[in-house]
Amino acid sequence: MTRTVPTPQAPRTVLVTGGTSGIGRAIAARFAADQDRVFLTGRRPGTVEQAAEELGVHGVTCDATDPGQVAALAAGFGELDVLVNAAGGLPQAAPEDVPALEAVLAQWHSSLAQNLLGAVLTTTAVRDKLTSGSSVISIGSIGAERRGGSYGAAKAALAAWNAALSGELGPHGVTSNVISAGYIAGTNFFQGQMTDERHDALVQETHDKRPGTVEDIAETAYFLASPGARHLTGQTIHVNGGAFTTR
């Protein structure tokens, strides 16, 4: 009986925005472990250089909310197999002397820029680099479903945009999905404000009684970019241990 030997997959070109820490870094590391050609971005040259060196990948300093920087980033690529929009975060606090309404406006602008517009700009800039078999993956949040404020609203908008994007890219053989992450421990997302009490409460909301890890999200991203996920597009994949359920 003749056994067919699978043809090794050629290294892919992968771009991960916000790849210097947390979820983005874990995703960059996962693709790098598969011998893919990985590029990570971040806003600060020092952290970009350090993360790239530690992971053995390419680093590019780029603020995903700056159109000029994003255009320059895109110009450096030929074909792109995987785009992961992982850049994002909580809004920056306005100075105390700013009038209340101006502070609210600044907070919402910050949330939308970091968690929606950066993904829109980056994806638009590299769109002509995507080919049949490429994947676009954006990192969302359980905050889009509850208690998310301006951050959650931006992540909800990210999912709505993704649904439209999938319809545009699908006919060209490109998939587009959002990973909606639940509580992920061990990141700097909460900027030092996570308490033991809040940690315990978030864990109790899950069905498996554990916090998520950056590896949980990285493995999901890796799957979404795999041949086995080619008919999976336009979706928001909830990775939260059951803290928020769908049917």
Rank of each mutant, 00 (worst) to 15 (best):
P211H: 06
A33G: 15
E145M: 14
A218K: 09
Q191T: 02
R247D: 13
I27K: 09
G173K: 07
T213P: 12
A103L: 00
W108A: 12
E205T: 13
Q191R: 15
D196A: 15
L80W: 00
G76P: 01
V178P: 07
R3H: 14
G149I: 07
M1I: 14
A160F: 09
L73N: 01
D128R: 15
G152H: 08
G241V: 06
T65M: 01
L116G: 08
R210E: 04
I27S: 08
H109Y: 07
E96S: 12
E79W: 03
G88K: 04
A153C: 04
E215F: 07
P171W: 03
L232V: 15
G234D: 10
A229G: 02
A52P: 08
V136A: 11
T187H: 09
V98L: 05
R44F: 11
P171M: 07
G59C: 04
R210P: 03
R147G: 13
L15H: 01
D216Q: 12
E145Y: 15
P91Q: 06
H231T: 14
V98I: 03
L90P: 08
G212M: 11
T65S: 10
L232S: 04
V239A: 08
V84G: 02
L130D: 03
G167A: 11
A113C: 05
T124R: 15
A159C: 06
I142E: 15
A32S: 13
L83T: 02
A74R: 00
E215C: 08
A159E: 14
G89D: 04
A201F: 06
D200I: 04
H172S: 15
I237E: 04
A229I: 03
T20F: 09
K209H: 15
P91L: 06
P45L: 02
T187R: 05
A106F: 00
A75K: 09
V60W: 14
A221L: 09
A243R: 13
A100L: 13
A64Y: 01
A243K: 10
G148R: 10
Q235W: 05
L158M: 08
S176W: 10
D128M: 11
E197A: 15
G78A: 07
A154Y: 03
L73C: 01
A218H: 11
A32T: 08
L15R: 01
S226W: 11
F190V: 09
T41A: 04
G149P: 04
D196L: 12
I142Y: 12
L80R: 00
Y183L: 14
A113H: 09
R44D: 15
A106H: 01
A94F: 00
S138F: 05
R127F: 10
D36T: 02
T236K: 05
P171F: 02
T213L: 12
L158C: 07
S150Q: 05
A201V: 10
T124P: 06
A74Y: 00
G170Q: 11
T122F: 00
H109W: 08
G24P: 03
A113K: 06
P211S: 10
P91I: 05
A10L: 14
G173D: 05
F244G: 09
N162K: 07
A221K: 05
V214C: 15
T13F: 00
G118S: 01
A72L: 07
R30Y: 04
S21T: 14
V98T: 03
N162G: 07
L40M: 06
S134R: 02
R230C: 10
G68D: 13
A156Y: 08
G149F: 06
S110K: 03
A52C: 06
P171H: 06
S111W: 07
P91N: 07
Y151T: 12
A164R: 13
N188Y: 04
